[in-house]
């Protein structure tokens, strides 16, 4: 069947074509842009520190180390073992401190508390402090991601 007039004008067709091209071009530029603005900052798989620095810790004390860009907290237990936490509050990411007299971890930002085992006990934190696994090999102390 031959139509007496086109249903689609040449102008409308070209507008759609050029518009579509521009949209495709624009979206093709967006993906590399979005990739570029987030730099890769992988968390370390493990961190090693000289054991000598941590050997003489008394039980129920905590000493810091650098877990990548975050503070790590190494704690000596009653039994003399070492436990490590990522010293960052699970509420809104502030660095926590260990209050030795109360044997609890404290976040000053919104008054969050964790017990000695890193369990969230008061205030807004939704989950326990993240644990890291600790092992001693010769004179180095190795802290690794858990699991």
């Amino acid at each position: 069947m031959k139509l007496p007039a086109s249903l689609y004008s040449r102008r409308a067709f070209l507008n759609g074509l050029i518009g579509g091209w521009l949209a495709a071009l624009g979206s093709a530029f967006i993906s590399p842009l979005l990739k570029y603005i987030v730099p890769p900052t992988p968390e370390p798989d493990q961190v090693t520190v000289p054991f000598a620095d941590y050997k003489d810790m008394a039980p129920h004390t905590v000493k810091g180390f650098a877990w990548g860009n975050k503070p790590g907290l190494l704690q000596r237990t009653e039994a003399g073992e070492y436990v490590a936490f990522v010293g960052v509050c699970t509420h809104l990411d502030c660095n926590v401190s260990f209050v030795a007299e109360q044997r609890r971890f404290y976040c000053a930002c919104h008054e969050g508390w964790y017990d000695e085992n890193g369990l969230n006990v008061a205030g807004p934190p939704p989950s326990p402090l993240r644990r890291l696994s600790v092992s001693v090999e010769g004179d180095t102390l190795i802290v690794k991601r858990q699991g």
């Binding site: 503070p71 926590v96 000053a108």
Partner: peptide, 10 residues
């Protein structure tokens, strides 16, 4: 200090 605990009274 990236490693220091958050200060009191922020």
């Amino acid at each position: 200090d990236l490693m220091a605990p958050a200060p009191e009274g922020i």
